[in-house]
């Protein structure tokens, strides 16, 4: 089961990073995020799975698609991969492989507890009590952070005063 989920998560993610068409990348990432939601569901964390679906599959993907469409360039302006880009890609894969090797080695070298029993049960009610009880302070901070981020995003993306509404500087 986990191997199946891994396939569902990793393959679209890798494909998304390789595609040249940004819309395809975004849609493939939606698939990958949905796979993650399935993983959470399988682990017994239903609430996180729903949050993942709502936030990533629903909202972030829409924001990404909007960004893609708003910043769409003429096809002829998209530069073909040049030597510098190829060099960068090679270096990137090497770096990522090194990071992966280090982490992977660390994981395999660590003795971890063997398989647990049934998935733990954490009802939405318990979670709500946790959030409003022990973690109430953090929840407030997160709320403030989200508000500030929202305002910041609006300020950043808003047209500047001298600019025409069409966004053509």
């Amino acid at each position: 089961m986990i191997l199946l989920l891994a396939l569902l998560i990793l393959v679209p993610a890798a494909a998304a990073m390789l595609r040249r068409n940004l819309v395809h990348s975004a849609l493939l990432l939606v698939l990958s995020w949905a796979g993650l939601a399935a993983f959470y569901l399988w682990s017994g964390a239903e609430f996180v799975a729903f949050a993942q679906v709502l936030v990533y599959v629903g909202a972030v993907s829409m924001v990404v698609l909007f960004a893609v469409l708003l910043t769409r360039q003429n096809p002829d302006r998209a530069a073909p991969p040049d030597a510098a880009a190829r060099l960068r890609a090679g270096a990137a894969v090497l770096t990522a492989a090194a990071v992966g090797a280090v982490i992977g080695h660390a994981i395999l070298a660590t003795p971890l507890p063997a398989a647990a029993g049934a998935p733990p049960v954490l009802t939405v009610r318990q979670l709500g009590l946790e959030l409003m009880g022990r973690h109430a302070g953090s929840l407030l901070v997160i709320g403030a952070l989200l508000t500030v981020a929202l305002l910041g995003a609006v300020v950043l993306a808003a047209a500047e005063p001298g600019e025409k509404p069409g966004g053509k500087p």
Binding site: A13, M17, A85, R88, A91, A92, V93, T95, A96
Partner: peptide, 9 residues
């Protein structure tokens, strides 16, 4: 690692 490679490349 996929994310890192994508972000870097």
């Amino acid at each position: 690692c996929i994310g890192l490679a994508g972000a870097l490349s």
